[in-house]
Design a protein around this nucleic acid. Structure first.
Length: 249
DNA sequence: TAGGCCATCTGGTCCT
DNA sequence: AGGACCAGATGGCCTA
């Protein structure tokens, strides 16, 4: 009996170590998928789903050879994910949107492209350069070996986890897109996850804060005396026009 | 309070 | 025989 008990304890210890190893591997995976956060960890199942979607989305970019629009990319990332995880992904993008705007404003730059175009991997990263043909790849000339770090940096405006992990430390934020009070991403039905999650996502409008007014998708801190109201408003409207085509079709 | 997530224990199965 | 792997059971913690 003593021997059986001892062997059971040994087996339990090995099983614990094995599960710890599995969890360590999952933690490493969390660091290389979008929206890594030490404070708001993705669950195991959501980590795997997001990783699968992320791999698939990046593979599609490589296969097609041109960047998708942001909504398509986000939709692909969020397929089958729970609403909280989708909110987290959206929250990450919101932070990037804000930093993007601040950066643009700081430079006083004018640009014609949509503000959210900076989120796309990897074709306009400084390392890879912008390919000719407005985002389409000329494989014979400019296609470089896919650089994971560059793609990650381009998309998240930070270094990749292999270099230094981007972090989204804040609490769950509302999604970046508040459109007429409701933001809805239509998700495809999935046999894998269909039983577990409600795919429809309905985000409540966030009371307007800061200088951007009711229709703005970008929320800035109220204490921010942001001097580029008109410029941002036009950017915001440009994006709204693009969103209009999607959500009001 | 219900449901989701997690860690741990446990017994079964497979492999070396 | 012993270790790795797996899945079910259980209880704790947290949140809506």
């Amino acid at each position: 009996m003593e021997r059986i008990k001892f062997r059971r304890q040994e087996a339990n210890a090995r099983e614990r170590n094995r599960m710890h190893g599995l969890n360590d591997a999952l933690d490493n995976l969390r660091k290389v998928v979008p929206c890594y956060s030490k404070t708001q960890k993705l669950s195991k199942i959501e980590t795997l789903r997001l990783a699968k979607n992320y791999i698939w989305a990046l593979s599609e970019i490589l296969r097609i050879g041109k960047r998708p629009d942001l909504l398509t990319f986000v939709q692909n990332l969020c397929k089958g994910l729970s609403q909280p995880t989708t909110n987290l992904v959206a929250g990450c993008l919101q932070l990037n949107a804000r930093s993007f705007l601040m950066g643009q404003a700081g430079e006083g730059a004018h640009h014609t492209r949509s503000p959210y175009s900076t989120f796309y991997p990897p074709y306009h990263s400084p390392e890879l350069g912008t390919p000719p043909g407005h985002g389409t790849l000329d494989n014979s000339k400019s296609m470089k070996p896919y650089n994971y770090c560059s793609a990650y940096e381009s998309f998240y405006e930070s270094t990749s986890p292999e270099c230094a992990s981007p972090q989204f430390e804040g609490p769950l934020s509302p999604p970046p897109i508040n459109y007429n009070g409701i933001f809805s991403l239509k998700q495809e039905e999935s046999l894998d996850y269909g039983k577990n999650y409600n795919y429809g996502m309905h985000y409540c409008a966030v009371p307007p804060r800061g200088p951007l007014g009711q229709s703005s998708m970008f929320r800035l801190p109220t204490e921010s005396h942001f001097p580029y109201d008109l410029h941002l408003r036009s950017q915001s409207l440009t994006m709204q026009d693009e969103l209009n085509a999607v959500f009001h079709n």
